[in-house]
Amino acid sequence: MSKVKYYYDSETLSYRKIERKKRRTFKYISLFLLASALFGFLFVFIASQYIESPKEKALKRELSNMQLQFQLLNKKMDETQDVLANIEERDNAIYRLYFEANPIPEEQRKAGFGGINRYKDLEGFDNSKLIIESHRRMDILQKQIVVQSRSLDEIATLAKDKEKFLASIPAIQPVNNAELTRMASGYGYRTDPFTKVRKFHFGMDFTAPRGTPVYASGDGVVTRADNRATGYGKHIRIDHGYGYVSLYAHLYNYNVRANQKVKRGDLIGFVGSTGRSEAPHLHYEIFKDGERINPINFYYGNLSAEEFSDLLEKASLENQSLD
């Protein structure tokens, strides 16, 4: 129960009861409520600035964890970039060089992404810079991996072609050294055995007894096995692909036929003295893109360094050919 208050009225010389007006009471209540509201708002504001709610703490931990994950991601991208850079260096300096392919330009490997802003949706956040940079690096890394993957696919194809090329080109002596009497004449100017005139000899003559086996010097397809070429007598021609053709002349007999596929080292015929020949021997020629070239450079497959040196010395002598 509220207390009743009085005041002393000097005119009537008596105590009179204090009557509180309703308007004033409403005013006091309004001021109290307003002050309370302001105080409450101020309290909430200060609390929000200095006191974290459980939800805010959880979000803050989540944000901190996200930043840590992005930092770890960037570290892993650095490591991946180092590994990829090593592969790219070997790709350009070893693999592509060995297979005679042009190196991939650096600007092509590490080109960025021009044009539209592909990271616009990631802008406007507190960590937008970190997120955008991570996405950008990831995109460039993915592009580099795609470029490198395609390069390795190309290298694999070139390796298969190289393997086929190395198996195809002439690379062995067509007559075994054990069955060879001597290397009679090499590529270059020699004396014609019939006219005694100095003329150019376009092949190499290997002297051997009649019937000595003759072997294919590389993989290929027999294009001719006949005696319809002037001077060669019975002869065989093998197309090795890549512009190379080998010719084996003055044969005694054939062991292959036209259009037959042969492998390096296959027995294709036998030494003879057919056609324009002075004695049993094998006349051996190599064509590259239709031009006859020196066969001396195509024996790396079965001759040692000493044997090749001896053959080179004998082939360089300007003597009399056998055809």
Score class of each variant (00 low, 15 high):
Met1His: 09
Met1Val: 14
Ser2Asn: 11
Asp9Ile: 01
Ser14Gln: 09
Tyr15Ser: 09
Arg16Glu: 07
Arg24Tyr: 14
Thr25Cys: 03
Thr25Pro: 00
Ala35Gln: 07
Leu42Val: 02
Leu42Arg: 01
Ala47Val: 06
Gln49Val: 02
Glu52Leu: 11
Lys55Ala: 15
Lys57Trp: 00
Leu59Asp: 12
Lys60Asn: 14
Leu68Cys: 00
Leu84Ala: 10
Asn86Ile: 02
Ile87His: 09
Asp91Gln: 11
Asn92Asp: 13
Glu100Gly: 05
Pro103Cys: 11
Glu107Lys: 14
Gly112Met: 06
Phe113Pro: 00
Tyr119Cys: 05
Lys120Tyr: 04
Asp121Val: 03
Glu123Gln: 13
Asp126Lys: 15
Asn127Ala: 05
His135Tyr: 15
Arg136Phe: 01
Ile140Asp: 04
Gln142Met: 05
Asp153Phe: 08
Ile155Tyr: 07
Thr157Ser: 10
Asp161His: 07
Ala167Gln: 13
Ile169Asp: 06
Thr181Arg: 11
Tyr187Thr: 01
Gly188Phe: 05
Thr191Ala: 10
Val197Ala: 14
Val197Pro: 00
Arg198Ile: 08
Lys199Arg: 15
Phe206Gln: 03
Gly211Val: 02
Thr212Val: 08
Asn227Ile: 02
Asp239Pro: 01
Ser246Phe: 02
Leu247Val: 12
Asn255Arg: 12
Asn255Gly: 10
Val262Phe: 07
Lys263Thr: 09
Arg264Leu: 00
Gly265Cys: 09
Leu267Pro: 06
Ile268His: 05
Val271Arg: 06
Ser273Asn: 12
Gly275Val: 02
Pro280Glu: 11
His281Ser: 04
His283Cys: 03
Tyr284Arg: 06
Asp289Ala: 09
Gly290Ala: 08
Asn302Cys: 10
Glu306Ser: 09
Leu311Asn: 07
Leu311Thr: 01
Leu312Tyr: 13
Lys314Glu: 14
Lys314Asp: 11
Ser316Cys: 00
Leu322Val: 03
Asp323Phe: 03
